[in-house]
Structures are given as C-alpha cells and as structure tokens.
Design a protein around this nucleic acid. Structure first.
Length: 153
DNA sequence: CGCCTTTGACCTGCGC
DNA sequence: GCGCAGGTCAAAGGCG
C-alpha cells in the first residue's frame, strides 16, 4: 500500500457503499451478467493491481498529478480509477455504455496492444482502457477512469 | 449521412 | 537534450 495519510481511502463495506466506485461495480456486473451470460461462468472479475497504485476492494480515489500544460488553468482533478481482470476470450465486453475507440498502443512489457476508449455520451468524461494480461492471455484487464454523468440505458 | 475504427503522428513526462 | 514510453489527436475510410 502506498497511500499517504492525507488520502482518504475507505475499506469497510459501509463506507464502500458511499463510494462512487461501487456504482461502477453495480452496472458492470449488471451489464455483464445480462450481456455476457453465456461466458459468465468464465467471467471471473476481481480488482487488479496497477503499477504504483494499489486498488482496495472496490476501487480508489486518487489525486491526479499536477496539471500539465494542456490542463493548465484547470484545477487538479480527482478521478475515480478502477481496474479489474476478466477471464474472457473477447476483449470487447459490452458493459451497457457506448464507447468510441480513440487509440491503440503497444505496451513495452507485453506483446499485446492496449486499446483506449472514451464514453461517447455528450459531456461524459469517462475513459477506459482494455488490454490483455501479459502473463495470462486468457484474461482481459479493463481500467475505468472517471464517473459517468448519465444512465447506462 | 452520422458515427464508428483504424492508424500514424503528435505531445508530454521522465530518466539518463 | 535526447530518446523512450504512455497517452491522445485527427484524417481517412468503413459500415449501418
């Protein structure tokens, strides 16, 4: 764990229910249970670690770094980031939102590409990135960033 | 026709 | 300062 004491991290279940991150899991599970029920048995989902940052059970709240020149003038944002791993053969998992792919990159460690998606709903700042687990190509790692400002359906 | 992928170029932070 | 790595842009084409 690499949290500073000034970062608020909730770990108890009662506190988790207050966290925006929990909403992610709600609709995620809903969407995937409905849309991907065929592969549900193999779709084990659980939070995953990210470099340098450790996610608690259901996600965390992190302070993004100092504003870049592109962001200069805006105040520092706090974003929700949530990553998890899914055992799936396909990486285009329908979670109930409309996504527009805006980039693809090869990552150095892995032979697998990483895909960048953005929520295509007007004004919604949510992004996600999808990549395969480099050790277990059977798994897909999905990282959500931001909070949806609208309903999924 | 509108929205989507694709893809290489571009930008930026960081380490050497 | 340079090069690399990760993230984003945008022009071009595809598909309903």
């Amino acid at each position: 764990m690499s949290y500073n004491s000034n970062q608020h991290l909730t770990t108890s279940e009662s506190d988790l229910s207050e966290q925006p991150g929990l909403e992610f899991t709600d609709w995620m599970f809903d969407g995937w249970l409905n849309e991907n029920s065929s592969s549900l048995a193999d779709s084990v989902m659980y939070p995953v670690y990210q470099e340098g940052e450790v996610d608690e059970f259901v996600g965390n709240t992190i302070q993004q770094g100092q504003p870049s020149s592109r962001d200069s003038g805006r105040e520092k944002e706090v974003r929700e980031r949530f990553a998890f791993k899914t055992k799936s053969e396909i990486e285009i998992l329908d979670d109930g939102f409309k996504w527009r792919k805006y980039g693809k990159k090869m990552v150095k460690n892995s032979p697998n590409p990483r895909n960048y998606y953005k929520c295509s709903v007007e004004g919604c700042p949510v992004k996600k990135r999808v990549e395969r687990d480099r050790e277990d190509p059977k798994y897909v790692i999905t990282t959500y960033e931001g909070v949806h400002t609208h309903e999924s359906s």
